[in-house]
Structure formats: C-alpha cells, structure tokens
Design a protein around this nucleic acid. Structure first.
Length: 219
DNA sequence: CACCAGGCAAGTA
DNA sequence: TACTTGCATGGT
C-alpha cells in the first residue's frame, strides 16, 4: 500500500518531468529575495510580485539591513503592485524581527539552523503560515520540505490521487512519506505541479484531454 | 463585466 | 471546531 503510493507519486513526477523538463525554481537571485517573494506571492499572481521586487531593487532596498531600516509605510508603497500591501509590509517586518530576535539579525544563522527549529520560528511569525514557511525553508534555506499549495491540492484531488478534504499537514505527510527526502526533487516536483496546474488544471476551464497526467493512476 | 492569482489571521456562532 | 470575511493589485 505504502509502496504502491510511493510508485504512484514518483510516476506523477516522471510524467511531469518528461513533459516540462527542469524548472529551475525559485525565481530569485538571493535567499533574501526568495524569502521576500514567498511573502509577497501569498494569494497573488507572480507577475505582480516581480513588479514589487523590482521596485525594492530599484530603491536599493532588497537587503536585510535596508529592509530593517525602511519605514513600514514606505515599504508598503514599494510593494504596492503585489496587493495586500499594508498587511504584507507588516508581515515582512515581522519576519525580519524574528531573525533579529532569534538569530542576532544574521540571515546566515537562520539558514544554518535545523529544519525543525527554523520551521517553528517561522510559524510563530504573524503572517507566515505553513506554505510560506515551507517555501522559505525549501527554496531559500535548501531544506528538504515538500511545499503544498492550492495547485498541489487541486491537481492531486482532481486526479483522485489524494482525499478531497485533506489538510496541509496530511497532504505534506503523504508526499514526504512517499518520496525520498531530496531537496532537488522536492523543488522540481512542486514547480512542475504549478506548471501543470496553470496549463491544464485551471479552476474554471480545465483542459483534461491534453493533460500529461491523464490515467497516471493506471499501472 | 466577473473571476482569478504559488495565504493568512481574525471574527463569528 | 467550522465557516466567513478582510486584505488589494493587475491580468484575462
């Protein structure tokens, strides 16, 4: 049973990898940029996030020190294109404050901390939920955590590969129990799921007939 | 025009 | 515990 499931999930990965090839996520030049992007992309189109990050770069504010010194209302103005700019400015400040408090303001210390400890610290930050925390851990800190998002849930439940009403933690456990714990695999797999969801598994008009995952559940 | 996008916290019953 | 609502821009 567990073995069958493992093969199934890996088969999904292989199908997607064959279809799309390497994804090379996360789009971001530095771990800090990845962290900021993880917060800004909450329920938000990535294109808008790029504009917001572009603003921060233009202002020379895309560093830990610069962001710490930046006034919250000004930060909100810079990240305006990404939407929810007031709450997100606060959330970014909360995140920076946590690193200040727990890691002496050293990003490197945070990235070097254990998976368990850094995850707990992230989840204590107001505005950082499980997906944002795990995105930071996987894509910025390079820790082996599988990131679950709405696309993951939609694609896998549409294909009846997981229960419809499973929660974040249960779904994550299924992936991590079924797959070898490998940063590169988790990174690529999640990125591939986003790609296939965007192309074939839209909320309103899915194009199931051309989807590379059709009949993946058959041996 | 309506709907959607790589969530999360806070409020209500 | 299990819904509901606010947050907000920009693309289709």
């Amino acid at each position: 049973m567990e073995e069958e499931n493992s093969n199934l999930f890996l088969r999904v990965y292989e199908r997607l990898h064959d279809y799309y090839g390497e994804q090379g996520w996360w789009p971001g030049e530095t771990p800090l940029e990845v962290m900021v992007g993880a917060v800004l992309t909450q329920n938000t189109n990535w294109g808008n996030v790029e504009k917001a990050i572009g603003n921060l770069k233009d202002r020379g504010c895309l560093s830990f020190e610069a962001l710490r010194e930046l006034d919250q209302d000004l930060l909100a103005e810079y990240i305006r294109p990404s939407g929810y700019y007031n709450v997100k400015a606060k959330r970014l400040k909360n995140l920076l404050q946590m690193i200040e408090d727990e890691y002496e303001g050293e990003l490197a210390f945070f990235f070097e901390d254990s998976l368990e400890s850094s995850r707990e610290n992230l989840l204590r930050v107001k505005g950082v939920g499980p997906e944002t925390a795990d995105s930071i851990l996987l894509y910025a800190a390079q820790k082996p955590v599988f990131v679950i998002d709405t696309y993951t849930h939609r694609v896998f439940s549409r294909h009846q590969l997981v229960e419809e009403d499973t929660d974040y933690f249960s779904l994550q456990q299924e992936f991590m129990d079924s797959l070898p714990s490998d940063v590169k695999l988790f990174n690529e797999f999640h990125a591939l799921i986003v790609s296939v969801a965007k192309e074939f598994c839209k909320k309103k008009k899915p194009r199931c007939s051309d989807c590379p995952l059709q009949r993946v559940e058959e041996k």
